[in-house]
Amino acid sequence: MKFLIAIGSKKYSGPTLEVGMRVANAFNAEVTIVYVGEKISAFSTSEVLMAQENLRNWKLDRQGVDVLEWAFDFLVQNEYVSLDSSADGFNVEKLVQTDDDRCEIFLEGIKTQEVGLILRNGDIIQQLREEVKRGQFDVTIIGGSQKRRTSHDLIQYIDSSIFVVKNYQPDRQYKMLLAVNDAPNTRKAVKYGVRVAQAFDLYTTAVTVSSTADFRGNYKKASAWADKFLRRSGVENEIRLEHGKFIETLSTIAGDNHIIVMGSSTKSPLVKFFTGSKPIKVMEDCKCPVLIVKE
């Protein structure tokens, strides 16, 4: 599997990197960490690149390299990369410009298969979308954004599962909340959820929410399957059947101390664009980390 972790700054991206690497470790995944800097005007691309090349002659780093270096130090301290890669510290000379707005460096991983560091410039959604397409990533991990539109765009346009590390507090005791229904992506979501629960040793609640008091047969079947799968995987869990509005119910149960895992919507992208979807609303309204699993 391949995971992409998007970081923004040293100040705010610590939890994202920490959670992202632990989850990637649980999946034994190949990890790439990407920093997306601000867009460079097309009028100035060559001039900025020339100035940045000149900085190298002075042994000065371009913007974003310090964030990658901080991420590198995190990987070394937590033994995610091998000593060979870390022996000389972060070597900016190994950063290879692959495109006008992209450069990368690869490190040999210990716990994970391989770790890549990418520096990009431009619109965050467009850059992540291109990176996911280029690297065929299965999961994209990113910190929570203040902009509601970002949640929508992430789910709508990024072609991978999305894990938004929202309001994550390292010292808080988290539980897992699995949203289970009869949608096709639920089984994959439960499987992902189990891996995360095992990695973090999380108590798991699998909740099925129906809008009426009468639960459809398929809902009950899905809930029973999730219960069986969780027990077989050795994850301590409880099964809940709730009726009410989906978003409110999930938000109330989750509070701020759960990691929500749910499947993506199977609605047409056109319908999702105009009317939204449950995962988009969950990501916007809930105050905790959310993993949306796509097909």
């Binding site: 800097g37 601000e38 460079i40 005007s41 009028f43 100035s44 001039e47 900025v48 100035a51 940045q52 371009r62 913007q63 974003g64 310090d66």
Partner: peptide
């Protein structure tokens, strides 16, 4: 603005 000229963009690229 940053986009006003390449020089503005160059100093902005320092972060």
């Amino acid at each position: 603005t940053i986009v006003a000229s390449p020089t503005c963009m160059i100093i902005h690229s320092s972060g």
